[in-house]
Every structure is written in C-alpha cells, then in structure tokens.
Design a protein around this nucleic acid. Sequence first.
DNA 1: CAGAAACACTTGTAGATACAACTATTGTTT
DNA 2: AAACAATAGTTGTATCTACAAGTGTTTCTG
Lengths: 161, 161
Amino acid sequence: MEQATADRAQDGSAPKQSPHGEAWGALTRTHAAIIQRLQEMLSAADFPPLPWYEVLATVSEAPDERLKMGDLAEALVITRGGLTKLVDRLVKAGLLERTFCETDRRVSYATLTPAGRDLLAEMRPAVIAELEVAFSANLSVAQAKDLRQTLDSVRSSACGS
Amino acid sequence: MEQATADRAQDGSAPKQSPHGEAWGALTRTHAAIIQRLQEMLSAADFPPLPWYEVLATVSEAPDERLKMGDLAEALVITRGGLTKLVDRLVKAGLLERTFCETDRRVSYATLTPAGRDLLAEMRPAVIAELEVAFSANLSVAQAKDLRQTLDSVRSSACGS
DNA sequence: CAGAAACACTTGTAGATACAACTATTGTTT
DNA sequence: AAACAATAGTTGTATCTACAAGTGTTTCTG
C-alpha cells in the first residue's frame, strides 16, 4: 500500500524515468552514500582509504594470498595503469610486495605481506560492522542474498555486452 | 537448486563474507561495470563524460530547470568544492549558467541553458538505451522496481546513520 | 544594532584516476 | 629461426576530486 512512495521520485518532481532508469539512479545514490559512510569511518579511525582495503581484501581471498596484476585490476574494475600506481603506494607502505612468475616473466603478482595481513585483520571488522548497520537495518538475510543475486545478474549482462 | 551459484563467490575461492558483505561486493562491482559501460558508450559517441550527463539530468528535473549548488551537490553525492569546478566546466561549455537568488545573495543556482537542454535531449536516449540493455536483459519491470525499493531503503539507513 | 555564529559557495593545493604511448616477454606464422 | 602480432605491466600527461582554508552573506544574541 505504501508502494506509492517507491514509485515517486524523492523530490516529487516531474519527468519520470523508466523503472530501469530509476533502479540505476537508486544504485548510484546508494553506492555513493555507502562509500561516503565507509570513508568517513575509515578516516575517523585513522585507517587507510577504502581502495586500499579493497586491494588487501581481494588479494587475501586469492590462493596463496597473491594475485596477478591484471586479474586484480579486473576484480576491482579499475584500469591496469591505475592499479600499478595504487599497488606502488601499498608496496611503499609495506602492505604488499611484488613477486614474479617463473614461467612467464611478464606477469607480476601483488602479494600480501604480514603487515598487510595484520592491517586487513584490523580493518575488516570495522568495515563489516559499518556494512551491517547500513544493510541489516532494513534488510533481512534473505533479502540481502536476493539483492546480491539480482545485482550479479545485471552485472553479467552489463559485462558480457 | 541453482541457488548454489548465488552463494558461491565467482572465483570459487575460500573465505566467505556475510550475506550483507556479499551484497555490498555485488553492488560495487555492478556499479563499476555499468559505469564503465556507459563511459565507453559516451566517449565512442563523442559525448561528454558521465558526470556532465548526471548534472544536466539532475538540473533538468528540478523546477524551472535550476537547482541550488548545495542541493545539486547533495543529489550527486559529491563535495561542494568539486561541484563548483564541475559546474565551471559546464558553464564554460555553454551548457549551464549561474543565476542568483534575490532574497539570499549567498545562494547561486545552476541553470540549464538551451544548449544544455538540447545536449541532454541528445544524450538521454543513448544513456537510457544502454541502461535498458544492461538491466532489462535479466530483469523484469517488477524486479527493477523491487530493486529500486530495496536500494533506497538501504540508502536511507546508510544516510540517516 | 553591533558582534559573533552559522551558512553558501569558491579557491588553492595535493592526491588519485584514466588514457595513451612505451618496454619487455611470449606466442604465432611462414 | 626471423618477423610479426599479442600480451602483461609500467610510465607520462592531463584531468578530475577531495580536503581545508577563505570570502561574502545572513541569522542569532545580548
């Protein structure tokens, strides 16, 4: 019954977009709002910025805690050039090191250092907690799984062309 | 039965996050993938970058096609300083103009020019079409509305703290 | 009705990102 | 095996963004 609010733009203004356009708008705003929230929390806790966390978390989930630069860039959905410089900063901070492949000397891996693993262990609970308050306040576990599935299906069609 | 795929990380790797964490991961990746797709399309069609479109679209939906700088920054979820320079570029390109408030000389409005309105009219169908292929391929209209509602409820709890 | 506080926006500067060109290594073709 | 093409990663440049300080305006207070 209250679904009228879902169909109405937040400012109640005129030219309505398509349902898919509305979904995209909601996606961008929600994404930005959560990013903002996380960044605030991290800087308040004197932690490194969010991209650093995402790098550490992604690498930590890979086998042997190392990941090819190209795969890492793809996982983070950033350019290879951007990743090179991002990893440079993490290496300089002692959180990552570059290791090389014996069989193919072109590839280099971003590998977690003990310091990187420790920092991640410190940051992860804080990030998880922040996400929990953002999500679990209005979302059941089942809804969260459903949301994930929906988003992934959208992503697959957006990537695959 | 197929829902196992929804519970499994795309790379099949080990340490699973919470459902909410997974939802967040899907949200960031999907957002980035769509952004990337839109940017590609816009630059291929010799259109201005996506932030320009978002400014024009947001302003066009406001009454009298003008919006206070502060409200615009909030709607786009960017800083005021960033918006000032972004609007500077749009003004220089003739797509926007700054107008001022009679009753409060502090506030300035970003106002759509005819050129801005024309460009938006050109860009909007292209953006909409791109979003349609990304969303409608795997999402019904009802699912899109549901997605929008879910995302907005998450955003409200993320904003309101 | 001063003076202080809050507000709206802009500017200055430093850091981060994308894009394109470049180096080095590997794979393919003839 | 030599030449060509494809791949992985890095670097150079230009643009964009955020953060913090600054300017001008309005509101609140004594």
